[in-house]
Design a protein around this nucleic acid. Sequence first.
DNA 1: AAAAGATGGTGAC
DNA 2: TCACCCTCTTTTG
Length: 280
Amino acid sequence: MPEGHTLHRLAHDLTDAFAGRPVRVGSPQGRFDAEARQLDGQPLEGAQAWGKQLFLEFPGERYIHIHLGLIGKLQLTPYDADGHVPPPIGQVRLRLVGENTVADLRGATACDLWTREQVDACVARLGPDPLREDADPLRAWTRISRSQRSIGSLLMDQTVLAGVGNVYRAELLFRHRVDPYRRGDALTRKQWLAMWDDLVALMHDGVATNRIDTVRDEHTPEAMGRDPRVDDHGGEVYVYRRTGQPCHVCGATVRTAELDGRNLFWCPRCQRASRSRAVR
DNA sequence: AAAAGATGGTGAC
DNA sequence: TCACCCTCTTTTG
Protein backbone atom coordinates (compact mmCIF):
# COMPACT_ATOMS: atom_id res chain seq x y z
CA MET A 1 0.00 0.00 0.00
CA PRO A 2 2.53 2.57 0.97
CA GLU A 3 3.03 5.32 -1.59
CA GLY A 4 2.57 8.94 -0.55
CA HIS A 5 -1.22 8.86 -0.73
CA THR A 6 -1.32 6.09 1.88
CA LEU A 7 0.70 8.13 4.38
CA HIS A 8 -1.30 11.30 3.88
CA ARG A 9 -4.48 9.32 4.33
CA LEU A 10 -3.08 7.80 7.52
CA ALA A 11 -2.05 11.22 8.82
CA HIS A 12 -5.61 12.42 8.31
CA ASP A 13 -7.22 9.34 9.83
CA LEU A 14 -4.86 9.33 12.84
CA THR A 15 -5.57 12.99 13.53
CA ASP A 16 -9.30 12.30 13.33
CA ALA A 17 -9.16 9.32 15.65
CA PHE A 18 -6.61 10.41 18.24
CA ALA A 19 -5.73 14.10 18.21
CA GLY A 20 -6.43 16.31 21.20
CA ARG A 21 -7.06 13.51 23.67
CA PRO A 22 -4.77 11.30 25.76
CA VAL A 23 -3.55 8.21 23.93
CA ARG A 24 -2.26 4.96 25.33
CA VAL A 25 1.04 4.31 23.59
CA GLY A 26 2.63 0.88 23.76
CA SER A 27 4.81 -1.62 21.97
CA PRO A 28 3.37 -5.12 22.42
CA GLN A 29 6.34 -6.53 20.50
CA GLY A 30 8.77 -4.65 22.74
CA ARG A 31 11.07 -3.03 20.20
CA PHE A 32 9.62 0.44 20.79
CA ASP A 33 8.86 -0.08 24.46
CA ALA A 34 11.25 2.41 26.08
CA GLU A 35 10.11 5.17 23.73
CA ALA A 36 6.44 4.30 24.03
CA ARG A 37 6.58 4.61 27.82
CA GLN A 38 7.70 8.22 27.50
CA LEU A 39 4.63 9.12 25.48
CA ASP A 40 2.01 6.91 27.10
CA GLY A 41 -1.03 8.84 28.27
CA GLN A 42 -0.12 12.06 26.52
CA PRO A 43 -2.35 13.68 23.94
CA LEU A 44 -1.54 13.36 20.26
CA GLU A 45 -1.20 16.88 18.90
CA GLY A 46 -1.52 15.84 15.30
CA ALA A 47 -0.16 13.71 12.49
CA GLN A 48 1.52 14.84 9.30
CA ALA A 49 2.98 13.18 6.23
CA TRP A 50 5.84 14.36 4.04
CA GLY A 51 6.25 12.09 1.06
CA LYS A 52 6.37 8.59 2.54
CA GLN A 53 7.43 9.79 5.99
CA LEU A 54 4.82 9.96 8.75
CA PHE A 55 5.19 12.03 11.93
CA LEU A 56 3.00 11.83 15.03
CA GLU A 57 3.47 14.88 17.20
CA PHE A 58 3.33 14.71 20.98
CA PRO A 59 3.83 17.46 23.59
CA GLY A 60 7.32 18.83 24.04
CA GLU A 61 8.20 18.69 20.32
CA ARG A 62 8.53 14.95 20.38
CA TYR A 63 7.62 13.02 17.25
CA ILE A 64 7.12 9.39 16.40
CA HIS A 65 8.72 8.98 13.00
CA ILE A 66 7.27 6.13 10.95
CA HIS A 67 8.35 4.78 7.60
CA LEU A 68 6.36 1.81 6.39
CA GLY A 69 8.91 0.64 3.85
CA LEU A 70 7.77 -1.98 1.39
CA ILE A 71 5.75 -4.22 3.67
CA GLY A 72 4.82 -2.13 6.67
CA LYS A 73 1.21 -1.48 7.62
CA LEU A 74 -0.49 0.83 10.06
CA GLN A 75 -3.94 -0.56 10.65
CA LEU A 76 -6.71 1.45 12.32
CA THR A 77 -9.49 -0.56 13.92
CA PRO A 78 -12.56 0.99 15.51
CA TYR A 79 -13.96 -0.72 18.56
CA ASP A 80 -17.05 -0.27 20.72
CA ALA A 81 -16.53 2.24 23.49
CA ASP A 82 -18.07 -0.15 26.01
CA GLY A 83 -16.40 -3.21 24.50
CA HIS A 84 -12.89 -4.39 25.15
CA VAL A 85 -9.87 -3.41 23.10
CA PRO A 86 -8.97 -6.18 20.65
CA PRO A 87 -5.73 -7.97 21.60
CA PRO A 88 -2.70 -7.37 19.35
CA ILE A 89 -2.08 -10.03 16.73
CA GLY A 90 1.40 -10.81 15.44
CA GLN A 91 4.39 -8.50 15.80
CA VAL A 92 2.93 -5.14 16.73
CA ARG A 93 5.76 -2.64 17.06
CA LEU A 94 3.57 0.28 18.03
CA ARG A 95 0.02 0.37 19.34
CA LEU A 96 -2.03 3.49 19.94
CA VAL A 97 -5.26 3.12 21.86
CA GLY A 98 -7.73 5.98 21.79
CA GLU A 99 -11.34 6.40 22.86
CA ASN A 100 -12.73 4.23 20.13
CA THR A 101 -9.88 3.31 17.81
CA VAL A 102 -6.79 1.13 17.95
CA ALA A 103 -3.84 1.68 15.62
CA ASP A 104 -1.34 -1.16 15.14
CA LEU A 105 1.97 -0.80 13.33
CA ARG A 106 3.58 -3.90 11.80
CA GLY A 107 6.56 -4.53 9.58
CA ALA A 108 7.69 -0.92 9.32
CA THR A 109 11.20 -0.04 8.23
CA ALA A 110 11.36 2.75 10.79
CA CYS A 111 9.63 3.64 14.03
CA ASP A 112 11.64 6.11 16.09
CA LEU A 113 11.16 8.82 18.67
CA TRP A 114 12.53 12.00 17.12
CA THR A 115 13.15 15.61 18.08
CA ARG A 116 11.96 18.58 16.08
CA GLU A 117 15.48 18.96 14.69
CA GLN A 118 15.52 15.39 13.39
CA VAL A 119 12.16 15.90 11.73
CA ASP A 120 13.31 19.13 10.10
CA ALA A 121 16.50 17.52 8.83
CA CYS A 122 14.54 14.64 7.33
CA VAL A 123 12.04 16.93 5.62
CA ALA A 124 14.85 19.13 4.29
CA ARG A 125 16.26 16.15 2.38
CA LEU A 126 12.97 15.50 0.57
CA GLY A 127 11.92 16.83 -2.79
CA PRO A 128 8.54 18.54 -3.21
CA ASP A 129 5.51 16.43 -2.24
CA PRO A 130 2.60 16.72 -4.72
CA LEU A 131 0.19 16.27 -1.82
CA ARG A 132 1.37 19.36 0.03
CA GLU A 133 -0.14 22.72 -0.80
CA ASP A 134 3.12 24.63 -0.69
CA ALA A 135 5.07 22.17 -2.84
CA ASP A 136 7.09 23.73 -5.63
CA PRO A 137 7.26 21.66 -8.83
CA LEU A 138 10.10 23.82 -10.11
CA ARG A 139 12.36 22.53 -7.36
CA ALA A 140 11.96 19.07 -8.84
CA TRP A 141 12.38 20.48 -12.33
CA THR A 142 15.77 21.94 -11.38
CA ARG A 143 16.99 18.45 -10.56
CA ILE A 144 15.31 16.70 -13.48
CA SER A 145 16.33 19.17 -16.15
CA ARG A 146 19.97 18.95 -15.16
CA SER A 147 20.13 15.18 -14.93
CA GLN A 148 21.34 12.61 -17.41
CA ARG A 149 19.61 9.89 -15.40
CA SER A 150 16.40 8.40 -16.76
CA ILE A 151 13.10 10.01 -15.81
CA GLY A 152 11.99 6.57 -14.56
CA SER A 153 14.80 6.62 -12.06
CA LEU A 154 14.36 10.28 -11.10
CA LEU A 155 10.66 9.93 -10.30
CA MET A 156 11.45 7.35 -7.62
CA ASP A 157 14.21 9.44 -6.06
CA GLN A 158 12.68 10.93 -2.92
CA THR A 159 15.15 13.80 -2.90
CA VAL A 160 13.82 14.84 -6.32
CA LEU A 161 10.13 14.21 -5.64
CA ALA A 162 8.61 12.94 -2.39
CA GLY A 163 5.82 10.39 -2.30
CA VAL A 164 5.89 8.76 -5.71
CA GLY A 165 6.35 4.99 -5.67
CA ASN A 166 6.44 2.25 -8.25
CA VAL A 167 2.76 2.39 -9.19
CA TYR A 168 2.48 6.16 -9.64
CA ARG A 169 5.78 6.19 -11.52
CA ALA A 170 4.68 3.62 -14.07
CA GLU A 171 1.23 5.11 -14.49
CA LEU A 172 2.33 8.73 -14.71
CA LEU A 173 4.86 7.94 -17.43
CA PHE A 174 2.23 6.00 -19.32
CA ARG A 175 -0.38 8.74 -19.09
CA HIS A 176 2.12 11.22 -20.52
CA ARG A 177 3.47 8.82 -23.13
CA VAL A 178 6.99 9.24 -21.82
CA ASP A 179 9.59 6.52 -22.29
CA PRO A 180 10.86 5.60 -18.80
CA TYR A 181 14.41 5.63 -20.14
CA ARG A 182 14.21 9.17 -21.47
CA ARG A 183 16.90 11.29 -19.90
CA GLY A 184 15.76 13.93 -17.41
CA ASP A 185 17.49 16.65 -19.41
CA ALA A 186 15.58 15.60 -22.53
CA LEU A 187 12.22 16.40 -20.97
CA THR A 188 10.66 19.81 -21.55
CA ARG A 189 9.57 22.09 -18.75
CA LYS A 190 6.06 22.10 -20.16
CA GLN A 191 6.00 18.30 -20.15
CA TRP A 192 7.15 18.18 -16.54
CA LEU A 193 4.60 20.75 -15.34
CA ALA A 194 1.82 18.78 -17.03
CA MET A 195 3.05 15.62 -15.32
CA TRP A 196 3.16 17.40 -11.97
CA ASP A 197 -0.40 18.72 -12.28
CA ASP A 198 -1.59 15.27 -13.22
CA LEU A 199 0.26 13.75 -10.27
CA VAL A 200 -1.32 16.23 -7.86
CA ALA A 201 -4.77 15.22 -9.09
CA LEU A 202 -4.05 11.48 -9.17
CA MET A 203 -2.57 11.44 -5.70
CA HIS A 204 -5.38 13.49 -4.18
CA ASP A 205 -7.74 10.99 -5.69
CA GLY A 206 -5.62 8.25 -4.10
CA VAL A 207 -5.95 9.85 -0.66
CA ALA A 208 -9.73 10.10 -1.07
CA THR A 209 -10.23 6.51 -2.24
CA ASN A 210 -7.27 4.88 -0.48
CA ARG A 211 -6.23 3.15 -3.69
CA ILE A 212 -4.49 3.96 -6.94
CA ASP A 213 -6.72 4.31 -9.99
CA THR A 214 -5.17 5.89 -13.03
CA VAL A 215 -7.25 4.92 -16.04
CA ARG A 216 -9.24 7.64 -17.76
CA ASP A 217 -13.02 7.30 -18.09
CA GLU A 218 -12.79 5.81 -21.56
CA HIS A 219 -10.49 3.03 -20.32
CA THR A 220 -12.43 1.80 -17.32
CA PRO A 221 -13.55 -1.85 -17.35
CA GLU A 222 -17.15 -0.67 -17.87
CA ALA A 223 -16.27 1.60 -20.78
CA MET A 224 -14.15 -1.06 -22.47
CA GLY A 225 -16.26 -4.07 -21.55
CA ARG A 226 -13.29 -5.82 -19.99
CA ASP A 227 -12.95 -7.62 -16.67
CA PRO A 228 -11.99 -5.42 -13.73
CA ARG A 229 -8.58 -5.94 -12.18
CA VAL A 230 -8.51 -8.60 -9.51
CA ASP A 231 -5.58 -8.57 -7.11
CA ASP A 232 -4.71 -7.18 -3.74
CA HIS A 233 -4.22 -3.63 -5.00
CA GLY A 234 -7.60 -3.30 -6.61
CA GLY A 235 -6.81 -0.12 -8.50
CA GLU A 236 -7.41 0.21 -12.23
CA VAL A 237 -4.11 0.88 -13.96
CA TYR A 238 -2.61 0.95 -17.45
CA VAL A 239 0.70 -0.85 -17.10
CA TYR A 240 1.68 -1.52 -13.50
CA ARG A 241 2.10 -5.31 -13.07
CA ARG A 242 0.46 -5.95 -16.45
CA THR A 243 3.52 -7.54 -18.03
CA GLY A 244 2.65 -9.57 -21.14
CA GLN A 245 -0.91 -8.26 -21.29
CA PRO A 246 -2.22 -6.03 -24.06
CA CYS A 247 -2.07 -2.27 -23.56
CA HIS A 248 -5.56 -0.86 -22.87
CA VAL A 249 -4.91 1.90 -25.38
CA CYS A 250 -2.98 0.40 -28.31
CA GLY A 251 -2.96 -3.34 -27.73
CA ALA A 252 0.82 -3.71 -27.73
CA THR A 253 2.28 -6.07 -25.15
CA VAL A 254 3.18 -4.39 -21.85
CA ARG A 255 6.85 -4.78 -21.00
CA THR A 256 8.82 -4.97 -17.79
CA ALA A 257 12.48 -4.51 -16.89
CA GLU A 258 14.46 -3.93 -13.73
CA LEU A 259 15.62 -0.40 -12.96
CA ASP A 260 17.50 0.50 -9.78
CA GLY A 261 16.46 -2.82 -8.33
CA ARG A 262 12.74 -2.24 -8.90
CA ASN A 263 10.37 -3.46 -11.57
CA LEU A 264 9.52 -0.99 -14.27
CA PHE A 265 6.44 -1.40 -16.47
CA TRP A 266 5.62 0.38 -19.71
CA CYS A 267 3.99 0.13 -23.11
CA PRO A 268 6.68 0.09 -25.79
CA ARG A 269 4.34 1.59 -28.37
CA CYS A 270 2.52 4.33 -26.42
CA GLN A 271 5.78 5.26 -24.70
CA ARG A 272 8.08 4.91 -27.67
CA ALA A 273 11.65 6.04 -27.12
CA SER A 274 12.41 9.38 -28.69
CA ARG A 275 15.47 8.26 -30.61
CA SER A 276 18.82 9.11 -29.09
CA ARG A 277 17.49 10.78 -26.00
CA ALA A 278 17.10 7.65 -23.91
CA VAL A 279 19.56 6.00 -21.55
CA ARG A 280 19.28 2.25 -21.20
C1' DA B 1 3.87 -26.77 2.61
C1' DA B 2 7.27 -23.87 1.00
C1' DA B 3 8.96 -20.17 -1.67
C1' DA B 4 8.74 -16.03 -3.99
C1' DG B 5 7.56 -11.51 -4.43
C1' DA B 6 5.57 -6.93 -3.21
C1' DT B 7 3.26 0.03 -3.55
C1' DG B 8 10.70 1.09 0.02
C1' DG B 9 14.95 2.48 1.81
C1' DT B 10 19.46 1.90 4.24
C1' DG B 11 23.93 0.69 4.84
C1' DA B 12 27.87 -2.29 3.93
C1' DC B 13 31.00 -3.71 0.32
C1' DT C 1 25.12 -4.22 -6.35
C1' DC C 2 23.50 -6.78 -2.62
C1' DA C 3 21.84 -8.20 1.99
C1' DC C 4 18.65 -6.95 5.07
C1' DC C 5 14.44 -5.36 7.42
C1' DC C 6 9.83 -7.84 8.35
C1' DT C 7 4.60 -8.97 6.88
C1' DC C 8 1.31 -10.82 4.01
C1' DT C 9 -0.44 -12.61 -0.37
C1' DT C 10 0.23 -15.28 -4.32
C1' DT C 11 2.50 -18.80 -6.77
C1' DT C 12 4.88 -23.11 -7.03
C1' DG C 13 5.80 -27.88 -5.87
